[in-house]
Design a protein around this nucleic acid. Structure first.
Lengths: 149, 149
DNA sequence: GTGCAGTTGATTGTGTACAACCAAGTTGTG
DNA sequence: CACAACTTGGTTGTACACAATCAACTGCAC
């Protein structure tokens, strides 16, 4: 009944702290994004496109760390929702570029307000926010550098 | 081509920093856990059970933030792998308690070495590690407190 | 006892994720 | 031209993750 202290506790694990925090933030976005007709990963893809429209599937994947097995059906759904348009390149018929439709571009404002809402609910100072973001980026880079090989 | 600075950049978003870091850490665990016959979420479930065996499905779900739609098939697979045994309670036939098998309990040592390997590859000082963990737990609690209502 | 509210885990449907594989298209070499 | 090596996005299969729903069971009021 009493947890034995010889075992690693779940709360001590960085992997679980990351897993839980990521899930919590996604959970905060989800109901708010639902009003926009977006899932959380779809929102991340739209974030990239609002920043730089017309990327290829491979470029999107590199920025998000996702492969075509995830992106292909996701982009197909964004296309079906009328937020995005996929176009084969003339120069290279294999390459698909993804463009925002006016409807997709028009969601940016609403999404920005969702973001502000969630981030203000996080209860972090500007400094704490920036510090955490930096730490996470460094951790991501270090850990990713340890695996791929 | 040039990203316009009027748009929120992906790298500035805490939600993406969390998403990427969580995925990176999971990606570091995955190949190492594969040798144990575990997926990453299965490893998290086993972490809980190594800490306190014989929990109900609801108790497991509360600790991990997962519902039965995720846990039921996951536990069924752990059961099929012979790492876990599910038992209906006598007192209440609805309640299922999850117990480690000897095989499941025996994985703890190997899993602990995997954990040490990944955490040492994260390149964090003990202080940085503890600080990040604390920040993430606080963030999780704050954000989770904002949504459920 | 009878019946209803509440609890518990399972199931279904949709949408990620990732590994493995595949077909179409491109490029370099001869 | 021929043709192997490579690149690109799509498909398939397995495994989460969550919302919605369900059936079985319990416990309480009556």
């Amino acid at each position: 009944m009493t947890p034995e202290s010889t075992h690693a506790r779940l709360a001590d694990q960085l992997c679980f702290a990351l897993y839980a925090a990521s899930k919590a933030v996604a959970g905060a976005y989800r109901p708010r994004l639902k009003a926009l007709g977006l899932t959380y990963p779809q929102y991340l893809v739209m974030l990239v496109l609002w920043q730089s429209d017309g990327l290829t599937v491979a470029e999107l994947g590199a920025m998000l760390g996702l492969d075509s097995g995830t992106l292909s059906p996701l982009l197909k759904r964004l296309d079906a929702s009328g937020l995005v348009r996929r176009e084969r390149t003339d120069r290279d018929e294999r390459v698909v570029r993804v463009y925002l439709t006016p409807k997709g571009a028009g969601l940016e404002e609403h999404a920005a307000s969702v973001r502000r809402e969630v981030e203000s609910g996080a209860g972090l100072t500007d400094d704490g926010f920036a510090q955490l973001r930096l730490t996470l980026h460094e951790l991501t880079a270090t850990v990713n550098g340890c695996v791929p090989g």
